[in-house]
Design a protein around this nucleic acid. Structure first.
Lengths: 337, 337
DNA sequence: TTTGGCACTCCACTGTCCGGAGTGCCAAGC
DNA sequence: GCTTGGCACTCCGGACAGTGGAGTGCCAAA
């Protein structure tokens, strides 16, 4: 019985603190939420919650503020991801359906996510690793120069310019194109790489060797894995206080895509909605920020991740709902493509 | 004679204010710069400079601060763009030479500029408008689905997926490819567009019509003109004070690429190093920021622009030198490609 | 176990004061 | 006619004390 009320008190504290940004006291709490008990009772509960480490007071005779542990409990047990309203769903659908290509989908998603949550949004480009090769095109720019274009199932296109040792006749180009495509088209990246390697046992300087090598290089190029788009940085302006402690490190992290990727988490974690709160991550500087992220991709595959980064004092239910909704719509679009 | 000294005083004020970030008084001025006159004399000069609108005092009995007009005079007449040191030049060359493709060049440039100037750097992708068509490739994905790939002289690749009304035989595809290329290859975008339009007088639903239409669309797609990369946002953290008045609007502008483009200026302005100081631009909110930008591109063409955005109180000579140096190296690289 | 009462704490805000830095002006000097 | 030293004046910003309010912890009674 008291246990239940204590949790209600914790929830009330989190909700109040998130909206007012100020430590919340016992009196305000009973007034704003219909707790049906007196402030004194709430005080007792608060003392208990503080003993257990869920809340803390900035100084004696101040209201209480949730700790990271408190937010964690709130997220895990006291909140259900509230579904988006019909209007919001329509807005998401309308905006994302207007996208013309993958770049556009990704860019629109970031903006959308940033708008919905009023936080900084981060979207990772679909990773190469699980996608398949749709087509390889070879374009002759000069007799001894070739443009190799790699088209993937996700819609990504990688191109490389190669210099051949010798001139290549048109018929040979046609041959080369079909050989390469027979080996790679339709295969998952990993398979395609092995197939291409099998074509040229010892890396020679033949046109085929050069092209295969280039393709393998393009496929294993991890720069593309690290591609990330960030949006809504203007929302950082709303942090207001603690500029140095919160905004500065975050601003720095946003530039370091490697760090962002770590924050978003591993794509292999699947579609699960993950929430990292405050100090729970490896980066001390980001102790006052939280990350809400999830995987997305066509079908039930999780090709990449997207999410938002914000202050620990954020609207978790809202953020979680928005992240999940956007991920679902993006996944659906990738499905259709 | 006095005129000369007045300018020296203005220069000293600008330099001091930029480095100390505090209003500079007459005494500190004579001490730090060997002006060879007494503080009282400097005060007279300052009063004159203030009358003419080059400097101002935040409040009575405070030191002086340069006005936008003061910075303008400083930039136009009191400073020479100091060349980069040999070490810096080497660093620029090393970093940029490592780039593997256009994307990489652009990304490295932004980072480099941000590092060199410790400001926010902005680089526009080479515009389509002046570049020429290197090749058009048509890839058959299914009998009635075609991937249209447009390759430009700048190394940019645009791709579009088109659905044909009917199936297309392989021979017809070969024909189609050569017709389109005969019309477009080697031409400047504008010419290519007219040539393609001439191919199909009335926009029909023939494969040729569809493809031509798609190409024209891809060429005139202004999304690509607007592509911009921003870096060094973490440097905003160094703004320190006036967060609301300076950082917030800038952060918002950085998200609006259209605004950024306007700030960078027209590419047609050529290679000229342009400096916009404070209120000189159309955006009131950015009254406390300055932009140093220049055009770049292969040969002497100015395909796009790059530059930095920072507080009006910035190191102009240093920024100008860095922007110019990076633009030159990037241009050189585009030359070679 | 809940509640009202009460003493206590601490912050945030306000007003006052004072020193320092800087200015403007004036009269004397070069 | 500039330049310079002197002097009175202004204003900011930090230090300091005082006050009110919000909130707490604890205790005894219901």
């Amino acid at each position: 019985m008291q246990e239940e009320r204590r949790l209600a008190v914790l929830r009330a504290i989190v909700e109040d603190y998130v909206s007012t940004e100020e430590p919340v006291g016992s009196k305000a709490l009973v007034e704003r939420h219909g707790l049906g008990v007196s402030p004194a009772t709430v005080r007792n509960d608060m003392a208990a919650l503080e003993d257990e480490g869920y809340i803390t007071q900035p100084h004696t005779s101040a209201g209480r503020v949730p700790t990271d542990k408190g937010y964690r409990l709130f997220v895990d047990r006291l909140t259900t991801v509230k579904p988006m309203s019909a209007a919001e769903k329509r807005a998401i659908a309308t905006i994302l359906d207007g996208a013309v290509d993958l770049d556009d989908v990704v860019n629109r998603s970031v903006r959308l996510l940033a708008q919905l949550t009023r936080q900084v949004a981060v979207v990772q480009y679909p990773t190469l690793s699980r996608s398949t090769v749709r087509h390889v095109e070879l374009v002759s720019l000069a007799p001894n120069r070739l443009l190799v274009v790699l088209i993937l199932s996700t819609g990504r296109v990688e191109q490389r310019l190669v210099e051949l040792g010798a001139d290549l006749a048109d018929e040979d180009l046609v041959d080369l194109r079909s050989v390469v495509n027979r080996a790679a088209t339709g295969e998952v990246i990993a398979e395609a790489v092995t197939a291409l390697r099998a074509l040229v046992p010892d890396a020679g300087t033949t046109p085929l060797g050069t092209v295969a090598e280039t393709l393998v290089d393009a496929m294993s190029d991890h720069r593309s894995d690290e591609r990330i788009v960030v949006g809504g940085a203007a929302n950082l302006a709303r942090y207001g206080d603690n500029f140095d402690s919160a905004v500065r490190p975050l601003l720095e992290a946003l530039e370091e895509h490697v760090i962002l990727l770590k924050l978003l988490g591993e794509a292999s974690t699947g579609e699960l909605l993950t929430v990292r709160i405050g100090h729970e991550g490896p980066y001390q500087e980001l102790a006052s920020t939280s990350v809400v992220a999830t995987g997305y991709g066509p079908g039930d595959e999780s090709l990449a991740r997207l999410g938002i980064v914000g202050p620990t004092r954020m609207d978790y239910p809202g953020s979680m709902a928005a992240v999940r909704a956007v991920a679902r719509y993006v996944s659906r679009i990738l499905d259709e493509a």
